[in-house]
Write a protein that binds this DNA or RNA. Structure first.
Length: 170
DNA sequence: AGTTCGGACCGTT
DNA sequence: AACGGTCCGAACT
């Protein structure tokens, strides 16, 4: 079997009041963020962490903390979203423009990237978002302010939106 | 009012 | 070829 992880990826834990997240870094920046309990490849063994990545990680920790508190982070680490398709990257960068407290519908996002009918595909791209919370896929709701879905536990989507002061429907 | 059903739509595996 | 974090209108309750 071949390992599913990028050979060049470094994983670092982030302890929060919500549990332990895990950040994955490539040589380009933060490449993935796992929710607590999402056991991915636990490499466990000691890693040599380049100074560059330590700096990025500090930024990630601070950004995650303020995001979990419902505030927009002042600064983000560099994000490595190169793993996504062209379409996914367009969606993800559209997500990054949604401020805390604001929301868009899946169809509004589709419109913003110039593919008004690719509504379901936008849902798929949101689900494929490797960096939840920081790339705010939770700020995308279904039509008419309904909650819609979420790949990981819906409790996260609810919690994050509530902390940002967003209203939604059952 | 609310709910369910069926089709249309599009990128990904 | 089949599946989704969808959407809309129609036909129900």
């Amino acid at each position: 079997m071949k390992a599913k992880t990028d050979s060049s990826s470094i994983e670092l834990p982030i302890e929060t009041t919500e549990g332990t997240f895990v950040a994955h870094y490539s040589d380009r920046g933060l490449a993935a963020l796992d929710f607590p309990g999402a056991n991915r490849s636990r490499s466990g063994r000691p890693q040599i962490v380049p100074p560059k990545i330590r700096l990025w990680h500090d930024a990630t920790v601070r950004a995650l903390e303020s995001a979990l508190a419902g505030k927009s982070p002042h600064a983000l680490p560099p994000l490595d979203l190169s793993r996504g398709t062209e379409f996914q990257q367009e969606v993800w960068s559209a997500l990054c423009k949604i401020a805390a407290g604001e929301t868009l519908s899946y169809s509004e996002v589709a419109g913003k990237i110039g593919r008004p009918n690719a509504v379901r595909a936008v849902g798929g791209a949101c689900g494929a978002n490797p960096i939840p919370v920081l790339v705010p896929c939770h700020r995308v709701l279904a039509a008419h302010h309904r909650l819609g879905g979420f790949s990981s536990d819906m409790k996260w989507k609810r919690a994050l939106l509530t902390r940002e002061g967003v209203q939604f429907r059952a």
